[in-house]
Each structure stands twice: as C-alpha cells, then as structure tokens.
C-alpha cells in the first residue's frame, strides 16, 4: 500500500539510447506516493519508453530509476520481481494474453501471487469487470472484443491486485470523448479508493488535464514542463504552449 509523503517514483538524470536514437537525454522526474501525474508530449518523444524504464523492462544507459526507494538500475531480476509485485500497468497495445479468456487475463496478476483463494479471485474478477462495464464478458476471448473493450480489460488487469503504483500508457487512445471521460472517471475513482500512485501517459491534452493535478511534458527525451496542470497553458516555453493549444504555429 502507498505511504503518503514518500517518493514513489524518482528518475534522476536518465539517459537511454535505443539503436542510433538518443531517446532520453538527462531526464528528471519525481512523483510522491499517492500522487497523480500525467505525461504529455508529441509522438516518439520517449513517453512509453519512460514507462518501461519505470518497471525495469528497459535499463538506462546512465542515471538512476528508483521506485518506492528501490533502485532498479542494477537490473537484478529478483529486485525487479519484488518491485513489480506492487506495480500494475496498462500497455499501449493492451497486451492481453490472446491464449486466455478475459476472466483469466484479469485474474492473472492475482493468480500469480499465489496467496489469494480461487473463490476470492473469481469474485474480484467479476467485480472488476463490472466496474469497467464488462460484466458477463469473463468467458470471452480477447479477439472477440473491440479496441475500447480491450482497453477496459487492460485497466481491470492492471488494477485488480490493488498495486501501489499504476502506470497507464495511452488509456484513452482511440476512444470517443464520452468513453474517454468515463474511463478517466473510473481511473480517478480507483485511485481515490486505493490511494495508489498513478502515472498516465497520453496525447489527449484536455482529458489528461482534467485527470491529473500535475503534468510533465516530454519532448525529444527531455522534460520541457513539469508542474501544475492548471498552469501549463501559461508556460514560458513556446513549445509547451503550442502543444497544449494545438496551434499549428510554433516550434513543433
């Protein structure tokens, strides 16, 4: 569970090169326990890569990534596994296991823990599916679902074990405005209930501004803005203002 006042995410001077491209260039980021941070930025700016660094799926070339006080930079699998037990993640492409039913997908993080009874797992899966509007879909295969439904299953899977840190990669990409709002309401309600730390990556500026109290904008591997979501539109950086306003004129 989260401990208010403690730092949940501490990214310090992280550099990462993938192939011939410098994806992250001296990135700094801090999120307090129970905080809600939205990450914005143009496509291919390093947002999804940052999420993979936070769960140890990628290792930085330089710098440090700490999750709830544990340094992930060593790449030690035992350390990573321990840290990952407290992290839930919605992947950009949902990453639902296509050889499992929806119910099995959602149950997976709980079943892997090994300390939750089968009856409790079944009840929690049903409740979670109901909360994301997919009651009665447990027996379906992921291939039978639409993109939006898959996204909701992904959210259910990411949050069912009530992790201390939840990472959402484009939680509303491809969804209509009404469903987008419903989705963010769901994420908010979840966070209020569990007190977890949430980091959401999105290109949907308006929706993310409504969801997260703090925003960070990443462009070409660097943080160009970090601060309150209510002040981002008045940033002194012309690039940030252009991205938020959606204007065609500007450095982007």
């Amino acid at each position: 569970m989260s401990e208010p006042g403690r730092t949940a995410i501490d990214v310090h001077d992280v550099q990462l090169r993938l192939g011939h491209r410098q994806v992250l260039q001296g990135l700094h980021l801090k999120v307090a326990e129970g905080g809600r941070l939205g990450i914005l930025g143009p496509a291919a700016g390093g947002k999804s890569v940052l999420l993979k660094l936070l769960v140890g799926l990628l290792q930085p070339d330089a710098g440090r990534v700490e999750i709830r006080g544990t340094d992930l930079s060593s790449g030690d699998e035992k350390v990573l596994m321990r840290v990952r037990r407290d992290i839930g993640m919605l992947f950009q492409n949902y990453a639902l296991f296509d050889f499992m039913t929806v119910g099995e997908n959602v149950a997976f993080p709980l079943a892997r823990r090994g300390d939750v009874e089968a009856d409790e797992i079944r009840d929690r899966v049903e409740a979670r599916l109901r909360s994301v509007g997919l009651a009665g879909s447990a027996h379906k295969m992921p291939s039978e679902l639409s993109g939006g439904m898959k996204k909701r299953v992904g959210i259910a899977r990411a949050t069912i074990a009530r992790p201390a840190l939840v990472l959402y990669d484009e939680p509303t990409a491809g969804l209509d405005p009404v469903t987008t709002q419903k989705m963010y309401d769901l994420l908010s309600a979840d966070q209020e209930e569990t007190g977890c730390t949430v980091l959401a990556v999105s290109s949907d500026v308006k929706a993310l501004m409504g969801f997260a109290s703090e925003l960070a904008l990443i462009h070409e591997g660097r943080i160009r803005y970090a601060g309150s979501s209510s002040e981002i539109a008045d940033s002194s950086d012309a690039l940030v203002r252009q991205f938020v306003s959606g204007s065609e004129d500007g450095p982007l």
Binding site: K52, L57, R84, F91, Y94, A95, F97, D98, F108, R112
Partner: peptide, 18 residues
C-alpha cells in the same frame, strides 16, 4: 514473435514471469 510485438511478453515479465 506475435506475443513480443503485442507487448504480451512485457506483460508476462511484469507479472514476474520469465
């Protein structure tokens, strides 16, 4: 390969699976 490009392998690793 399909599991890799659809991030299912990453999801497995995140669940503590090799």
């Amino acid at each position: 390969g399909t599991m890799k490009v659809t991030e299912q392998i990453d999801a497995l690793r995140l669940s503590g699976i090799t």
